[in-house]
Design a protein around this nucleic acid. Sequence first.
DNA 1: TTATCTGCAAAGGCTTTGCACGACT
DNA 2: AGTCGTGCAAAGCCTTTGCAGATAA
Lengths: 161, 161
Amino acid sequence: MPIFSKGHVKSTISTPEVVRQRFRQKGLKLTPQRYAIYEMMIHTDSHPTVEDIYHAVQPMFPMLSLNTVYYTLTSLKKAGLIADVPVQEGAARFDANMDRHHHMVCVGCHKIEDLYDQALDQLKISTKSTNGYLLESYRVEFRGYCSRCRKRQSQAKQKTE
Amino acid sequence: MPIFSKGHVKSTISTPEVVRQRFRQKGLKLTPQRYAIYEMMIHTDSHPTVEDIYHAVQPMFPMLSLNTVYYTLTSLKKAGLIADVPVQEGAARFDANMDRHHHMVCVGCHKIEDLYDQALDQLKISTKSTNGYLLESYRVEFRGYCSRCRKRQSQAKQKTE
DNA sequence: TTATCTGCAAAGGCTTTGCACGACT
DNA sequence: AGTCGTGCAAAGCCTTTGCAGATAA
């Protein structure tokens, strides 16, 4: 069963050596905590919060502090190994998937899923509209209801009918 | 001189009566503080933060509390009279321009400007990509450098050459 | 009159900062 | 050896909550 069923081939391969090299290349020291955090990030597409990451990694490092998670995420982000997910709902969310993609946010359960769409990757703005801006990047965020929340809604509706 | 030089005709007209009616329609009480806050919001396109609004209105109401600004903004948002600007940089930003539009964020000075572009208002996603989501809305955020920051950059570059 | 709004105060959540010890290169 | 990372603690910023008095409808 493919990890990505949507026709997207993940470009991020992570063996310990690859990770080690990637860190060295960016001038980042490779500590066990960092390795664990980065590994965890690579193997999820759930766009975890700092707390999520902390609770996922902490069992392996009982002494791990939240602070270190913050620090690590900041470092990884500066190095371009992860990105923060542009959603404004209290806690920040992070994403180790650096392939070009966009996001769908479920209004019901606040889940965030990746969206791959070629057309979205090629948006063009007429220079007339940009008011002198030199635009370098953009992101598209879709909002709606995920399949599970839709099911839940229609069931709740049936009951009241 | 037109307020909107980009071909956009502002649809929000605000006379005191219109505001009064709009509030009543939404079941909002029209207090002097609220009126002042909403008026201020309507007459700016700077996407102010709560603090910005507070400092703009406070001179007229020396007793005004930040709390009231928060409360008012929450009420106005629930009523659909304003929207929060989807940018995640510490403080929330608000916008009384409810016409369909998108935003350009300046990476240099963090200014936010409106972007009107018909093509952006008609994005379509193939249902194959949506993984069961029922998408209801979306927004596009562009990032880049505004004309002023571009000028500043090129000047700084000249000096070092 | 009554539900809402205001202002003050306090608490809450997320994040950053300071510092000394420890670890990676 | 020296720089960077870790953990603990404290502080910071933005926002929400609680409550009594005031006010718009």
